[in-house]
C-alpha cells in the first residue's frame, strides 16, 4: 500500500452527540504531512460524524475521504467527559478489539470535550497530534502530574477485579492545553477527580515521580523543596481475618531549592529540621489523599489485587476498604542546596 494512498489518523476523540437520536460524535484528527522532513507536518484536518456506534461512524468517515484511513499511527484516544461519566467499558472494548490500533495508544479524558482539545493547534508541533502524545510520554515530558494510561492498561483495569481505572484529564483553558489532574473511574464510568496536588501525590504512590516540588514551613522560614526522585513500595499485611494494613513506604530524594523571601544559608541542623518537616508534611498529605480515595470507594492503586495476590483463599472482597488501616512511612534524604553549599 502506497503512503500517498493513506491518510494517517493521529488522534481519535469520542464525544456525546448533540443530536439527541445519536449516541456518539466521533472526531478524527488526520495529519496532512507531506512526508518531507524539511517542512513540519503540523497541518491537520478534523473529520466528525454522529452515529450510534463507533464502527458505524468510522465507516462513514471512510467514505468522506478519497484515501484509506490508517489507524496504525493513532497515538491518542480522547474520551469526552460526558461520555466518560456514562459508560467507559464499551469504548475501551471496541478499541482493544481493533487490531490496527496500537495497544500502547494513550487514553485521556477531555474537558470540556474531545472536539475542543483536538481543535487546539499548538504553536510548535512536529506532526499533527504529536503534541498530545508527547504530553503523556514519559521520556519527553517529565511533568510530575500527568500519569499516562495506555490502552492495554485500561483494558486490564476494566477486566481485572481489585483494580480501577485512573485516567489523566486533558483540559483546554484559555487557549492552552493542560494535563495536571487525574480522573478516578469505577468499572462503569468516571466517578471523581483529583486536583493537581493530589494527582502529584497519587503519581508518587503508584509509578513514582521525578521533578516534583513541595513547600515546607519550618520555624525559621519557608522553603521550597524539589523532589528529584520519589517512589513508593506498597504492601498489604493481613494481620488476621478482620483487619488488614496497607503499608506505604515512600522514598524521596530531594534538594532545597529556595527559601521564600530570603537567601539560603543551610547548616546541618537546619537540613535535619527541613527533612523532618518534609517527612511529616508528605505523610500528612498522603493520609489525606488516601482518605479521599477511601471515601470514593474506588481502588485505583490496585489494593484489592494486592490482597488477592497475598492469600490462597480467593475470597471475593466486595469492599476492600472495610477494616483497612493505612500506614505511611516516609524516608526523605536531602541533598542540601544544589551546587552551592
Amino acid at each position: 500500500m502506497d503512503i500517498d494512498k493513506r491518510s494517517f489518523v493521529t488522534a481519535i476523540g469520542i464525544d456525546e452527540s448533540d443530536n439527541l437520536e445519536k449516541k456518539y460524535k466521533i472526531t478524527l484528527k488526520i495529519s496532512l504531512s507531506k512526508g518531507d522532513p524539511a517542512t513540519t507536518g503540523a497541518e491537520f484536518t478534523l473529520l466528525s460524524f454522529d452515529a450510534n456506534s463507533i464502527s458505524e461512524a468510522l465507516k462513514n468517515m471512510q467514505s468522506m475521504t478519497d484515501k484509506e484511513l490508517f489507524y496504525g499511527h493513532t497515538k491518542t484516544i480522547l474520551i469526552g467527559e460526558n461520555v466518560a461519566t456514562k459508560e467507559i467499558r464499551p469504548i475501551i472494548d471496541y478499541f482493544v478489539r481493533k487490531a490496527d490500533i496500537q495497544r500502547t495508544a494513550y487514553l485521556g479524558v477531555a474537558v470540556p470535550n474531545a472536539l475542543q482539545v483536538l481543535e487546539f493547534k499548538p504553536k510548535v508541533e512536529q506532526v499533527a497530534g504529536s503534541y498530545l502524545f508527547s504530553m503523556f510520554e514519559e521520556n519527553s515530558n517529565e511533568s510530575p502530574y500527568a500519569k499516562a494510561l495506555t490502552l492495554f492498561d485500561a483494558y486490564r483495569r476494566e477486566t481485572e477485579s481489585g483494580i480501577n481505572l485512573a485516567m489523566p484529564i486533558i483540559e483546554v483553558q484559555h487557549k492552552k492545553i493542560q494535563v495536571n489532574t487525574i480522573a478516578l473511574f469505577s468499572k462503569k464510568g468516571l466517578e471523581s477527580k483529583l486536583n493537581a496536588k493530589e494527582s502529584e501525590l497519587f503519581k508518587l504512590l503508584t509509578v513514582g515521580i521525578k521533578n516534583g516540588s513541595t513547600i515546607i514551613n519550618t520555624n525559621d522560614g519557608t522553603y521550597t523543596i524539589k523532589i528529584l526522585k520519589g517512589k513508593t513500595n506498597c504492601k498489604i499485611i493481613n494481620a488476621d481475618n478482620n483487619t488488614k494494613t496497607a503499608f506505604f513506604h515512600i522514598k524521596l530524594q530531594t534538594s532545597v531549592e529556595e527559601k521564600v523571601d530570603n537567601h539560603l544559608d543551610l547548616t546541618y541542623e537546619k537540613v535535619q529540621k527541613i527533612q523532618d518537616e518534609t517527612e511529616k508534611k508528605i505523610k500528612k498529605d498522603v493520609h489525606l489523599l488516601l482518605d479521599t480515595i477511601q471515601k470514593s470507594k474506588l481502588d485505583p492503586m490496585g489494593l484489592g489485587l494486592k490482597l488477592r495476590a497475598s492469600s490462597l483463599l480467593h475470597r471475593d472482597i466486595p469492599d476492600i476498604y472495610s477494616n483497612l488501616n493505612f500506614k505511611v512511612k516516609v524516608d526523605c534524604r536531602i541533598k542540601e542546596a544544589g551546587i552551592v553549599g
Partner: peptide, 24 residues
Amino acid sequence: YFGLKGVGLENYVWVTTIDSMHIN
C-alpha cells in the same frame, strides 16, 4: 501485561503482548 482474567480473553495472546510493549 493483561492480568489473570484478561489473558484468557485474548485470541492471539503473544502478538498482542508484543503490541502492548513500549519499545522506544
